[in-house]
């Protein structure tokens, strides 16, 4: 007779057809294309990785400066520099498969046709999951432009849904007026999940020493400073949707992760945190499992259910 081992807990999670060993995924643009972080951690210890954002043609990205550290985070203006989908299929996909890495391909386009084309190529190559980047604030055309308005977003996701049969995740950002309308549109178009949030439009200013004029960098803010925005965004869209949500924005420890589960996330992504601690995602996977063991949660659903039991004292301080 099978005896249940009290020392094992089930941390697995399902996002559409994508099965994750645990709900911890590394975010696009912070973990490379494949096994870049194998010198720092065991890649199989986490649920999966999201690749750098990939476009139909290779992109050069934005001019320097591209990075500015600010209090509690960093502003980036990379502008989607990437090798393009063909080079990805030829050079990176075999490495992902060889290393048995669970991965999600992040895709970005300048037009609806481009999204559809990249998604078709992903389908032809039997890629299991894609994340549509509809919220990058750093490019002139595409991305955020489509993610702002619910009608164009609905059409776009619907078109991609027609050509891609794997897990379809749509990445949204907080740079919109009505998060719930956008989220409903994504759900109605047949997406399997929403991931949120992308970086937040931001600016760093440096006044010249003689007080005449200033220098600046504009881009997307990420890191611990955006966590409250991310939690609120997810809490609001959760009220109006029932597809899984992959939450992210400044997660740097176990408690942050639990907060994201509490407001409605089913899985989480680690982005900027990897820059601070290259093995943060692995550490969190270990800590989550340990937390569940110590506190008697046999599976992730039980933990999430418990966290979402709302405390009536909503506005209470710690």
């Amino acid at each position: 007779m099978a005896v249940e081992n009290p020392n094992t807990v089930d941390t697995s999670q399902k996002i559409g057809s994508l099965l994750l060993k645990n709900p911890i995924i590394t975010a696009s643009g912070t973990f490379g294309y494949t096994n870049e972080y194998e010198e720092f951690m065991e890649l199989k210890s986490i649920g999966g990785i999201v690749t750098k954002g990939i476009t139909l043609n290779p992109r050069q990205g934005n001019p320097q400066p591209r990075i500015k550290e600010v209090h509690g985070g960093l502003i980036n203006s990379i502008g989607l520099e990437n090798i393009g989908i063909q080079a990805f299929i030829e050079k990176k996909l075999p490495v992902l498969k060889e290393n048995n890495i669970n991965f999600i391909v992040n895709i970005a386009g300048e037009s609806p046709e481009e999204y559809k084309k990249i998604a078709s190529i992903c389908q032809e190559n039997e890629i299991n999951a894609i994340e549509m980047n509809l919220s990058c604030p750093n490019v002139d055309k595409g991305c955020l432009e489509f993610g702002k308005d619910e009608e164009s977003l609905y059409k776009l996701v619907l078109e991609v849904r027609k050509v891609f049969r794997g897990a379809l995740i749509v990445k949204l950002g907080s740079n919109v007026s009505y998060p719930e309308k956008i989220a409903i549109a994504v759900q109605n178009a047949g997406a399997d999940a929403i991931s949120a949030i992308n970086t937040v439009k931001a600016m760093h200013v440096n006044i010249n020493k003689n007080y005449k004029g200033f220098k600046f960098i504009k881009g997307g803010l990420s890191g611990q400073s955006i966590k409250p925005l991310a939690l609120n965004f997810i809490y609001e869209i959760k009220k109006h949707t029932n597809i899984p949500i992959i939450g992210m924005g400044g997660i740097s420890n176990l408690n942050d992760m639990l907060e994201f589960f509490a407001v409605g996330s089913d899985a989480i992504q680690i982005g900027t945190g990897t820059f601070t601690h290259p093995n943060l995602s692995e550490k969190l996977a270990f800590k989550l499992e340990n937390f569940m063991k110590v506190n008697g949660y046999n599976n992730l659903q039980a933990l999430i259910h418990s966290l979402r039991t709302e405390d009536m004292n909503k506005n209470g301080n710690d």
């Binding site: 912070t30 973990f31 591209r66 990075i67 500015k68 900027t272 990897t274 290259p278």
Partner: peptide, 15 residues
């Protein structure tokens, strides 16, 4: 160069 990662993934220091 200014980079976030040191591993080549952030593309902050691309030249």
């Amino acid at each position: 160069g200014d980079f976030a990662c040191g591993t080549g993934v952030c593309m902050g220091c691309a030249i």
